[in-house]
């Protein structure tokens, strides 16, 4: 396993993926945002405010998706002791935290005109806030422990414990019947929103996904280079 996923392999893979991911990101985000903001119908209940949803819903999906990426990386790091997996978790965390924060902020901006308040303490909002704190805790733990490998493994344990929160987020709208509306796209019986609204939503979602790939690769490269630097420093100290 170590042989097939070393930094050199990763760099080769990243080089071939990067231009594609970047193009997809630019195209889908540009077209998605154009449709979302200018060329889609206003909602008969929500009016123009519905346009916030095109940012909000995919951001919330990404918040959960990135957490799962982090959790899988953490699991790999703990079970197979793979150094790239530790770095993958570290690289993903700030991106996930950013998406979660975006979901929370756009949700609050939408909530003010719709619900008459920026924030309610219902199951969905609270569990997403908890997810944001879990991201912060994960990053803080990485920062706090000096030895990088120990720090990464400690943070990985926390990430795995926090996985419990994911189903709570997903099902909170069903378990607690509160202000936040239930799922309308990710449903077993098919989406319940009109296709004019579904398309921009999916375009933005793909755009976010592509952005994640681009940012993730950038951050992975940064972390790998930092590791190289620290190995070189170690060499110098050991040599001198």
């Amino acid at each position: 396993m170590h042989r097939f996923a070393n930094p050199a392999q990763f760099n080769r893979l990243a080089d071939s993926v990067m231009p594609w991911a970047f193009s997809v990101m630019v195209l889908t985000l540009a077209s998605g945002l154009y449709f979302a903001l200018f060329d889609s119908p206003a909602d008969y209940q929500q009016g123009e405010s519905v346009r916030i949803m095109y940012m909000h819903v995919p951001a919330a999906w990404m918040g959960m998706f990135v957490y799962m990426v982090m959790a899988v990386a953490s699991f790999t790091a703990l079970v197979w002791r793979h150094p790239l997996a530790l770095i993958a978790g570290k690289a993903a965390a700030p991106i996930g935290a950013m998406f979660t924060a975006l979901a929370l902020i756009t949700g609050a901006l939408w909530g003010k005109p719709m619900w008459g308040t920026y924030w309610v303490w219902d199951g969905r909002l609270t569990s997403v806030l908890v997810q944001f704190f879990l991201y912060l805790g994960y990053m803080a733990l990485w920062q706090a422990v000096e030895d990088d490998e120990k720090a990464g493994r400690a943070a990985s344990i926390l990430a795995l414990v926090g996985v419990v929160n994911i189903p709570i987020i997903k099902f909170s709208v069903d378990w607690w019947n509160t202000l936040h509306q239930p799922a309308s796209v990710m449903r077993l019986d098919g989406p319940t929103i009109h296709s004019d609204m579904l398309w921009p939503l999916l375009l933005v979602a793909v755009g976010y996904q592509a952005y994640f790939v681009v940012a993730f690769i950038w951050r992975m490269r940064l972390e790998i280079n930092l590791r190289k630097l620290s190995v070189m420093r170690m060499n110098e100290v050991a040599g001198g």
Binding site: H2, V231, N235
Partner: peptide, 12 residues
Amino acid sequence: QIGQNSLESEWL
């Protein structure tokens, strides 16, 4: 020398 370590040499 540190290069003896296979994992570390991968980073360089």
